[in-house]
Amino acid sequence: MMYLYEFYHLFYDTLKKVYPEIQELNHLFFILTTHVLKCDKIKIILKLSIKEKIDDFIYKKLIRKLWELKKNRPIQYVIGKTNFFGMDFLVNEKVFIPRPETEELVSWIINDYKIKNSENIQIFDIGTGCGCISITLKKKLPKIRSIHAIDLSHEILSIARINSKLHNVKIFLRKVDILHNLIFLQKIKKYPVNIIVSNPPYVRVSEKKFMHPNIFQYEPFQALFVPDEDPFIFYKKIIYWIKKRFTGVVVYVYFEINQFIHLDFIHFMKKYRFTDIEIRKDFQGGFRMIRAKY
């Protein structure tokens, strides 16, 4: 039998070079221990204070996951889930880990439509990943007529499907490669209002050197990076699809964007004749979200 406080000290000694910020280490410690010991943070603090013992099985499980963290594997992949909008979503290395910035983008949509008649609205979540955007919107805006969650592989969509069942919501999952055949997405009805939301790859390859290793070592490359010479490649495909498929109806787009080239992005949207363009900062002060009308 081992003491939890012994693991606490081992955890900090092992990871302090990987995660030098003490607050981040604290955060990781409580995510891991509450998951493995199946209790809340207050109980973990109590167990530490009274120097409670943990059995060998639990201790070995904690150690295995600690070594994964030492190898820069993100905590969300280590425990197999992440929290988004107060809800748990299953994740693995096939999908990008949702970020707080995306929560803000989803909040924007919810606030825009929570008091409106949403029965004649359909939403397209392009590049759905684990399905967190689609599922959260369906939970918070249940009167939305239909939500289409789009991604490029059955493996990715299977994760979104599991999460939709976990949260008991109905979304339509569609396997479509955004770059190569989004234009051929068929059987789409035109609604009076159509919302396109997307957090596509937008990090330029040259920006990789500024990222923490646990991001580019484990998270899917295709969900993160775009060529330096064509950073808007995914947005171009989405806009081309909008222009071809949604003539005569109102379309609103909500995009997460690269904060370092936000002025270029505004110019890009104006070039394609989008109007009512609004850009917002995220909680860290970066221009990361944009809404526009077509």
Rank of each mutant, 00 (worst) to 15 (best):
M2G: 01
Y5F: 14
E6D: 15
H9A: 10
F11P: 00
K17L: 09
K17G: 07
Y19K: 07
L25W: 04
I31G: 06
T33F: 04
H35I: 03
L37H: 02
K41C: 07
K41S: 08
E52K: 14
D56R: 02
F57D: 10
K61V: 05
R64L: 04
K65F: 05
K65H: 04
K70M: 00
K71N: 14
N72G: 01
N72H: 11
R73H: 02
I75F: 06
Q76K: 08
Q76A: 14
Y77R: 11
I79R: 00
I79M: 01
K81M: 09
N83I: 15
F85S: 11
M87Y: 15
M87T: 00
D88K: 09
D88H: 01
D88M: 01
N92H: 04
E93Q: 13
K94H: 09
F96L: 15
I97S: 09
P98W: 03
P100C: 15
P100M: 12
E101A: 12
I110Q: 08
D112H: 08
D112N: 14
Y113E: 01
I115H: 12
K116Q: 13
N117F: 06
E119C: 07
E119A: 07
I126T: 02
G127C: 08
S134D: 08
L137R: 10
K138C: 10
K139L: 14
K139S: 13
I147H: 05
H148E: 07
L152F: 07
I156R: 03
L157I: 08
A160P: 13
R161E: 15
K170G: 02
I171Y: 00
L173D: 03
L173N: 04
K175N: 12
V176D: 02
V176H: 03
V176T: 13
D177S: 09
D177N: 15
I178L: 14
H180D: 09
H180I: 02
F184N: 13
Q186E: 15
K190T: 11
Y191N: 12
P192H: 15
N194L: 12
I196G: 09
S198V: 10
P200V: 07
V203T: 14
V205N: 08
F210C: 03
P213G: 12
N214G: 12
F216C: 08
Y218L: 03
P220T: 02
Q222P: 00
E229F: 05
P231R: 12
F232L: 05
Y235S: 01
K243T: 08
R245N: 12
R245Y: 03
F246T: 06
G248L: 05
V251T: 13
E256D: 09
E256W: 11
Q259F: 10
F260C: 03
L263E: 06
I266F: 08
H267S: 13
M269C: 11
M269G: 02
T275E: 13
I277W: 06
R280L: 10
K281V: 08
G285S: 08
G286K: 14
F287L: 04
K293T: 10
Y294W: 13
